[in-house]
């Protein structure tokens, strides 16, 4: 089995590894980079649990190979909060709105919302609701995460108005 040398920046750490061509990025992040916060709910691109930030875009890590991420800058749920433990606004909104129960879908949901907010600055509530439809949750009936999307959209617009 040929091994390929890759270097990926994960949550600010540069990780170098020799990997098989077939190793998925999701498995790499979990097993080789210690990012077990990246969850695998289907491994066929539907559930969204494995979503990470890939050079700033929300991407499903189960659908990519680790070798395709050579040289990329990846953000995971484990790098989102401040070093002192202060939650990212998306994490805080999800907690305040009871957006999670078992927490299995949560990392993907949070990464998608955080990536869209980062890229688009003032997305509308509709836009955030729309991107949530790419995530499956079996516990919550989506009620809390939809409320979180609403409050994040309002927060972003208020912040932009103040600026």
């Amino acid at each position: 089995m040929t091994l390929h040398r890759i270097e990926i920046e994960v949550d600010g750490d540069v990780i170098a590894a020799e990997v098989e061509g077939r190793l998925t990025l999701g498995d790499f992040l979990r097993d080789r980079a210690g990012r077990t916060g990246v969850h695998l709910g289907c491994e066929h691109g539907v559930c969204g649990a494995c979503t990470i930030s890939f050079n700033g875009d929300a991407v499903r890590s189960c659908l990519m190979l680790a070798v395709q991420a050579d040289g990329a800058r990846i953000g995971t749920i484990q790098g989102l909060a401040e070093a002192d433990g202060t939650l990212h606004p998306v994490q805080a909104a999800m907690q305040a709105e009871y957006g999670l129960q078992c927490g299995f879908c949560t990392p993907g949901v949070v990464m998608t919302l955080a990536s869209v907010l980062e890229a688009e600055k003032t997305p509308s509530e509709e836009r955030l609701r729309d991107v949530l439809s790419g995530h499956l949750c079996r516990c919550t009936g989506y009620q809390g995460m939809l409320r979180a999307a609403k409050s994040l959209a309002i927060q972003a617009q208020t912040a932009a108005g103040d600026a």
Partner: peptide, 15 residues
């Protein structure tokens, strides 16, 4: 439960 689950520090069997 939320803080660990929201920061990717949960501990599920696959982990």
């Amino acid at each position: 439960e939320d803080k660990r689950l929201l920061t990717g520090r949960g501990s599920y069997v696959a982990d």
